[in-house]
Write a protein that binds this DNA or RNA. Structure first.
Lengths: 213, 213
DNA sequence: TCCGTAATTATTCAAGCGTATAATAACGAT
DNA sequence: ATCGTTATTATACGCTTGAATAATTACGGA
């Protein structure tokens, strides 16, 4: 009876691997399928190791949720600062949020699995709140820039209202577009969103060139 | 050792009670907290009875999901046909979906808990799809009526695009409004939505009277 | 009034869960 | 080379889970 050989990985690497394995489990079999044993097996370690890096399974799930939110924010907020026009930046922001990798079955699965915990566990609620506010704040600033660029006087509360509405629409389109995506094959979501935002902002065009195929 | 007394309830009543107990459990403790034993206890029966009415726990959860979706559709689609103006009907539709009982912590909890299963279990996917399409179809018709009423020629594909956008915004506002509702205390969601839809549809006013406090 | 049916309770079972603890071996320091 | 540290494995514990089965009792129809 020989013991299984192993190698000592760096703490950061191990934690990352464990979280990645956790997310794989959640994606494929839901939160219920993310058991300590299954996660350990997928990470190629034994279950005891999990408790060596996380004080409990719950704490590991929280870390995993943080990583998901951070990933979504990172992908979503890639608004190249070099783009001079605010309109172009807002357009890029919308497109980034309504195309892969944000619009993606895996991302949605993870998001949905965790969102059901937001109202049960206060720690999850805080993680969600932080992510939401970061997103909306970025959007609010973009809207203010666009309005200013169009020569309007951007009333802060007005900008916020626009941001809330646009944020809602992006969230909803992202959600339904991913859940029942096959229903949207004909018309790209990002196109709908852009035209809608243009109308919402009072007819400001977000693009000079026609939209791509 | 005397056996616990009981009474034989009608099948419909028992099934309803069991589903109600299931939803209570999910609301308070999430899907993971909805165990057969806990549900039975809350329904005032013993756990064996559940298997007498449902062939498995999964099947009972599916029935519960159907009931949640049906409830949301029922509450949401209360568009009084007697309202003559299509604009008034659309306005009522939007308000109904962005005020209680649709905007409600319990409704969201249940929705969120189930949505995470949509991508794991095909049966749940079908239930969701049916609900979504019913909702969007109703909205599509309302939009067509409003545009026709405004003297425009309602191109079907244009109506659908409007419906998708509006549906997305309602979904997103509903979701975020319930999740982080305290952030919206100042400005009512339904007001934001109505003004946004007005802009979206090209400036059509949905109301003659000013909005309530 | 009695009796058959089936709705309901009571009990049991095997599997899987998160957690705890002890043994071991990999690897850096010396 | 050797040693000490600790990352990692191995094993076990107690509990909960969904499901299965057997025993009962409520209730309608004769």
């Amino acid at each position: 009876m020989s013991r299984r050989p192993f190698h000592r990985a760096g703490e950061a690497e191990r934690r990352h691997d464990l979280i990645a394995a956790t997310l794989d489990c959640i994606f494929e079999r839901g939160l219920q399928g993310a058991t300590v044993r299954e996660i350990a097996a997928r990470a190629g370690v034994t279950q005891g190791l999990i408790r060596h890096y996380f004080s409990s399974k719950d704490q590991m799930l929280q870390a995993a949720y943080k990583e998901v939110m951070a990933g979504m924010t990172r992908d979503a907020a890639v608004v190249d600062e070099s783009l001079k026009d605010a309109r172009t930046r807002l357009r890029a922001f919308i497109i980034a949020n309504l195309t892969p990798p944000v619009v993606d079955g895996r991302t949605l699965s993870l998001w949905a699995a965790f969102i059901s915990h937001v109202r049960v566990d206060p720690v999850f609620a805080e993680i969600h709140r932080d992510g939401y506010l970061a997103f909306r704040t970025a959007l609010e600033r973009l809207v203010a820039d666009v309005l200013a660029e169009a020569g309007q006087d951007p009333d802060p509360s007005e900008c916020r209202e626009f941001a809330i509405a646009i944020n809602g629409m992006i969230d909803g389109l992202w959600l339904e577009g991913t859940l029942v995506g096959d229903l949207f094959s004909k018309t790209p979501l990002s196109g709908i969103a852009i035209r809608s935002v243009e109308a919402l902002l009072g007819g400001i065009r977000l693009t000079g060139n026609e939209e791509p195929s």
